[in-house]
Design a protein around this nucleic acid. Structure first.
Ligand SMILES: [Zn+2]
Ligand SMILES: [Zn+2]
Ligand SMILES: [Zn+2]
Ligand SMILES: [Zn+2]
Lengths: 131, 131
DNA sequence: TTTGGAAATGTTATAGCATTACATGACTTG
DNA sequence: CAAGTCATGTAATGCTATAACATTTCCAAA
């Protein structure tokens, strides 16, 4: 289980901003929303985001250059998490698939490639927006 | 099979720069390497890259903000291509796995999500660099 | 041959994302 | 207290990508 009690002030502000948004936010959007709370510079946000990502409370979405609060407290049981991202409403669905993990792992092991971090992002349109 | 004969001047320059490099390059690195060939502005490179990506001759690597020449002339038979990227030597291995595609497709179809573009990128260390 | 449309190009400026460098402060531990 | 570590503050800079607009090239239809 993930611990949210030992966050510093800035980390807590950034995390709460992402949880409130419920959709991915860029670092600069987070900064704008936290200026009234005292944040002044991008680096304050990026530092908090780095720590939050390391703790697994936040995920970086590479194809958006944005960050989203983790939707699944147990996602750390998986090495790899996948994201389905709706380009209309920005909703993100986070999931994992052990078979996908196994196939990718088999591929890299077969080539003696040491995997550190895997990104899986599906961009498209969600059910509600396609309707 | 992919056709490389109908490229415009700028597209051809950018494509050859990527083929020569054999590793991913950022748009600005490409621009630097092509200044002697007449390119002056980022947009000239980005426009060529967009076209090359649409044709499937080039892939964008989201986790690097960089571009790489397609290594597999037949990769278009697959909706989805995966990349193993060595952070030491920058070598990229491009592959596809129909089972991975099928599992991801099953997930999105189950939620009536319409997938447009899927990114799979594995960052790590290749066999040669791990020693 | 002319003409009109589509696509590519050239150029400047600007917007958006991320890090470097350095100084300061808070807190712990011996 | 002194030293070490971690978080913070601030300014400056660098990297990535697009907007806006003018011009040129090419090709096909009239
Ligand atoms: Zn998660
Ligand atoms: Zn949607
Ligand atoms: Zn390819
Ligand atoms: Zn390597």
């Amino acid at each position: 289980m993930i611990d949210t009690t030992d966050l510093t002030r800035n980390q807590d502000l950034v995390f709460k901003a992402l949880v409130d948004a419920a959709v991915p936010l860029s670092a600069y959007t987070i900064l704008d929303r936290l200026r009234d709370s005292g944040l002044r510079a991008p680096l304050q946000v990026y530092r908090a985001l780095n720590t939050l990502c390391e703790k697994g409370l936040v995920h970086r979405l590479e194809s958006l250059n944005a960050f989203v609060a983790c939707a699944r407290p147990d996602c750390h049981r998986h090495e790899t998490v996948a994201f389905a991202i709706c380009d209309q409403c920005n909703q993100v669905s986070e999931f994992s698939d052990t078979e996908v993990e196994a196939r990718l792992d088999a591929w890299v092991r077969g080539r003696e490639f040491r995997a550190e971090r895997t990104t899986i992002e599906i961009r498209g349109t969600c059910k509600g927006c396609a309707g």
